[in-house]
C-alpha cells in the first residue's frame, strides 16, 4: 500500500476543494493511503517564473522537507507536478545538500492521472458520466510530463461518457500564471480561440487536468454566456462530479 502525500496546490485548496477529494478517492480506490501534510503552501512556481530564484528555492526546500518521507507525492496539476519533477532539481542543482534530495523527490512526484495509470497501472475507473466531453491538454502536463493518452484511457472507461476531441487539443489556453493578468489582451485572444475550439465540438463539458487553465476557460465561457460546463478531469473520473456544480456555475 503506497503512502501517498497529496500536494493539494494553492488553486485547488482555495477554489476547488472537490478536486482534492476527487484525488483522494481515486488514490484510495487504487489502494493508496493518502495524507495531506500540514504546512504545505505553494510549490514556488510563480516565483520561479518571475525570475525570483531565491524565493523559489526557499519554497522548494520547504516542500521537499515536508514531502520526502512519502512513497509518492501526487499532485492534481501537471503544472505544479512539473515544477517539482523538472524544475526543483535544476533550481537546487548547485546546493550539495539539497540537490540529491530534490532529485529524489522529483523522481517520486507524479501528476495524479499519470500516477494512477503509469505507476499504479490503473486501466479503468468505475464512475459514470452521461454526456459528451472534450479534453484540453494543459501545456505543462503535455509537454513537460508527456501526459496525453493517460486521461483519455481512463475517460474511455467512464460509463456513459463520449469524448469529442477539439481542434489542436494542446494549444495553450492563454493562462500562463501571471501572464494572463500581465498581458490580458493577448491572453484573451488565446482563450477565445480555445473557447471556440471547445464549442465547435458540441460537447457539453470541457475537462482538463490543471485548475489554472480551467479557471481561465470557465471565466471566458461564462463571460460569453456559454452553457458548457467546466470540470477537472478528476471530478469525472472519481464520480464526484454529480455532487458539485461545475466550475463557475450558478448554484
Amino acid at each position: 500500500m503506497p503512502a501517498v502525500g497529496l500536494f493539494v496546490t494553492c488553486l485547488v485548496d482555495l477554489f476547488r476543494p472537490t478536486v482534492g477529494f476527487a484525488a483522494v478517492r481515486l488514490l484510495e480506490d487504487a489502494g493508496c493511503t493518502v495524507a495531506v501534510p500540514d504546512g504545505q503552501t505553494c510549490c514556488g512556481q510563480p516565483a520561479h517564473n518571475a525570475g525570483e530564484r531565491g524565493t523559489a528555492r526557499d519554497l522548494a526546500r520547504r516542500t521537499i522537507a515536508l514531502f520526502e518521507g512519502f512513497d509518492a507525492v501526487v499532485v492534481p496539476s501537471g503544472s505544479c507536478a512539473g515544477m517539482i519533477r523538472v524544475h526543483y532539481p535544476e533550481l537546487l542543482a548547485d546546493d550539495p545538500e539539497w540537490a540529491p534530495r530534490a532529485r529524489r523527490l522529483a523522481a517520486r512526484t507524479h501528476e495524479l492521472v499519470s500516477y494512477l495509470t503509469d505507476v499504479l497501472g490503473v486501466a479503468a475507473v468505475t464512475a459514470r458520466h452521461d454526456g459528451a466531453v472534450t479534453y484540453h491538454d494543459s501545456c505543462s502536463g503535455l509537454r513537460e510530463l508527456g501526459i496525453r493518452e493517460q486521461p483519455r484511457r481512463l475517460l474511455a472507461s467512464v460509463a456513459g461518457l463520449e469524448l469529442r476531441e477539439m481542434a489542436d487539443t494542446g494549444a495553450c489556453c492563454g493562462f500562463g500564471g501571471t501572464f494572463c493578468v500581465k498581458y490580458p489582451d493577448i491572453s484573451d485572444r488565446m482563450v477565445a480561440d480555445k473557447a471556440a475550439a471547445i464549442a465547435a465540438t458540441g460537447a457539453d463539458t470541457v475537462l482538463a487536468g490543471d485548475l489554472g487553465c480551467l479557471l481561465n476557460i470557465a471565466g471566458k465561457l461564462s463571460r460569453d454566456g456559454s452553457p458548457i460546463a467546466v470540470r477537472h478531469v478528476a471530478e469525472v473520473l472519481s464520480g464526484l462530479a454529480g455532487g458539485t456544480p461545475p466550475i463557475g456555475a450558478r448554484t
Partner: peptide, 20 residues
C-alpha cells in the same frame, strides 16, 4: 487584468484543507 475579458469563477466557499 483578469476580469477585463473573463469572469472569475467563485471558489466553492471553504478550502480543501479546512474540509480535510
Amino acid at each position: 487584468g483578469w476580469t477585463r475579458h473573463r469572469d472569475l469563477p467563485a471558489p466553492e466557499g471553504r478550502t480543501f484543507r479546512e474540509l480535510w
